[in-house]
Simulated assay, not measured.
Amino acid sequence: MIRTIQLLRYLTDAQMRRRVTAATNKVEAFNGFSEWVRFGNRGVITDNDPVEQEKAVKFNALLTNCLIFHNTLDIAQAVRELQAEGWKVDPQDLAAAS
């Protein structure tokens, strides 16, 4: 019953569908970037030990998050430099960049 109610809300609420689509797109983008980041054995986990498998997955997610954070810092530094040079930075442009 709960699933049916949620599905009906989803079908009748356009704003909810937009939010769900936006969230799904973010997750898919993260997963795609995470796959691109993988290294060693082309990202294939060859260990049969579940603990080692979990480590490999979590280390890859950590590396992916570190790269995203570093990129964010680089963008913030570039924006600060532009502002110091007198450029007006529109918040909507920043929102699109993020």
Results as ranks from 00 to 15, higher is better:
89 V>Y: 01
41 N>F: 11
74 D>N: 09
16 M>L: 15
95 A>P: 04
21 T>Q: 08
9 R>W: 05
58 K>D: 10
81 E>H: 02
52 E>F: 06
36 W>P: 00
26 K>R: 13
61 A>E: 12
68 I>F: 05
4 T>Q: 06
38 R>H: 04
3 R>W: 06
40 G>P: 00
28 E>M: 10
48 N>V: 01
37 V>A: 04
98 S>A: 15
33 F>N: 11
26 K>T: 07
69 F>G: 03
23 A>Y: 04
2 I>G: 14
25 N>C: 08
24 T>L: 07
36 W>K: 10
78 A>S: 11
61 A>M: 11
29 A>P: 04
16 M>G: 04
5 I>E: 09
77 Q>R: 15
64 T>W: 02
49 D>A: 02
46 T>C: 04
51 V>C: 05
77 Q>A: 15
9 R>Q: 15
98 S>K: 08
54 E>Q: 13
96 A>R: 08
92 Q>R: 13
71 N>A: 14
51 V>R: 14
90 D>P: 14
29 A>Y: 01
7 L>E: 08
2 I>E: 10
19 R>M: 13
56 A>P: 00
70 H>L: 03
1 M>I: 11
33 F>T: 11
36 W>F: 06
44 V>C: 03
43 G>P: 03
6 Q>M: 15
44 V>T: 08
59 F>N: 15
34 S>Q: 11
51 V>G: 05
49 D>H: 00
4 T>A: 13
35 E>N: 09
49 D>G: 02
31 N>K: 14
17 R>A: 13
6 Q>W: 13
36 W>C: 00
83 Q>S: 08
58 K>C: 05
52 E>V: 10
75 I>E: 09
50 P>D: 11
18 R>C: 00
22 A>W: 00
56 A>V: 01
78 A>R: 14
47 D>Y: 02
73 L>M: 10
21 T>P: 00
45 I>H: 05
50 P>M: 06
41 N>W: 08
53 Q>S: 10
88 K>N: 05
8 L>V: 04
52 E>S: 06
66 C>L: 15
89 V>F: 03
92 Q>E: 10
33 F>V: 04
42 R>K: 15
57 V>W: 05
16 M>H: 09
38 R>P: 02
63 L>Y: 09
86 G>S: 07
74 D>S: 07
81 E>M: 10
48 N>I: 02
35 E>C: 02
52 E>M: 15
42 R>C: 06
56 A>Y: 02
76 A>P: 03
38 R>Q: 14
62 L>G: 06
42 R>N: 15
71 N>P: 01
22 A>S: 07
42 R>P: 09
8 L>E: 09
61 A>Q: 11
51 V>E: 09
84 A>C: 01
63 L>F: 12
80 R>S: 07
7 L>T: 07
85 E>I: 01
72 T>A: 14
72 T>S: 12
2 I>D: 12
86 G>W: 00
85 E>L: 09
81 E>K: 12
32 G>L: 14
5 I>D: 04
79 V>C: 03
10 Y>A: 02
97 A>T: 07
31 N>F: 13
29 A>R: 15
53 Q>L: 06
46 T>I: 08
53 Q>K: 14
86 G>E: 05
15 Q>L: 01
71 N>S: 12
